[in-house]
Design a protein around this nucleic acid. Structure first.
Lengths: 158, 158
DNA sequence: GATAAAATCACCCGAAAGTATGAAGCTGTT
DNA sequence: AACAGCTTCATACTTTCGGGTGATTTTATC
């Protein structure tokens, strides 16, 4: 592990230690220079005060969890109108639509009658009606045209 | 203005001054008690460090604007993709569609029943049926779902 | 193997949609 | 005025659609 990694891991320790060392070095240097004999204590106190003021600020900023405010923003989801149709699987599962019901919906949207849909899917007319009824129930509509309209709007069909 | 109000207004000043006064009082008391002669400087430094550490933390918390982290939660709102619809006028005239017939077609596409369309356009049910019949004739379809499908495909309706 | 969900089909009834035909009024144009 | 086209409405009839109910079979899941 490189020194930089150690620094990152024990950031607080290094900062603290480094600051202290720097402070002592400065004081020793001043002592050596015979500058601060008379006001040594005041300078000491001031430096310590500064150091810990900064440390306190740094601490507070670092250790205080950012206040999270969850803001619900309604974001319109535009369904790509043209080409590569991507079915809104989420909506499909949310509505609990089955495979057959979706097939019926697609053929409805294509303009086929129940009889024609029955022919295409090799079902009896009654079965198609049952699928259609369930579909309407799940989509909360009364007519096939409504189902088609809602299906398109929700991205269930192209 | 009461003292409490002054305190609120100049909070920082009072806190700072109060702390300093308290610190000096404590030190003087300790001096008087002959307790801290030998370690006076270390105690001084420690107290100053503590004081300013707290001050720094308080400062930071007080003067830093609360960090608001906005978390966007996407909520799907199903709306009709608003692609600026441009009616295929050419196709309209080619087919010889009348104004009324187009209106009926639009409402059909929206999923309305003949009865509802009649209500919206202030017509009798029979009239709507007549328009629908002519529409189907001109579009060469048999059912309303087919008309809607063909209408969309030909750009007659959005 | 029990259970649940989906898929399949049937029957009935009423409502909605579609077909056919006729007719009257209201535009514009020639 | 005559004509064509659009709009409006009506009546009668047929077909399709949708709702309700019930049943059997298949498939998936635990």
């Amino acid at each position: 592990m490189r020194i930089a990694d150690y620094f990152r891991k024990y950031k607080l320790f290094w900062l603290y230690g480094g600051s202290m060392a720097l402070l002592l070095a400065v004081l020793k240097w001043m002592e050596l220079k015979y500058i601060v004999y008379s006001h040594a204590f005041e300078i000491y106190a001031g430096l310590i005060a500064l150091l810990f003021l900064g440390l306190g600020i740094w601490f507070s900023r670092k250790l205080t969890r950012p206040q999270v405010e969850t803001r619900i923003v309604e974001k319109p989801v535009y369904i790509a109108a043209s080409t590569p149709f991507i079915r809104n699987e989420q909506a499909c599962t949310d509505l609990g639509l089955s495979e057959r019901e979706l097939e019926v919906l697609e053929l409805m949207a294509a303009g086929f009658s129940n009889q024609e849909i029955a022919g295409r899917l090799f079902l009896s007319l009654n079965t198609v009606k049952t699928h259609a009824a369930r579909l309407f129930e799940k989509l909360e509509v009364q007519r096939r045209t409504q189902a088609v309209e809602k299906g398109k709007r929700m991205g269930l069909i192209p």
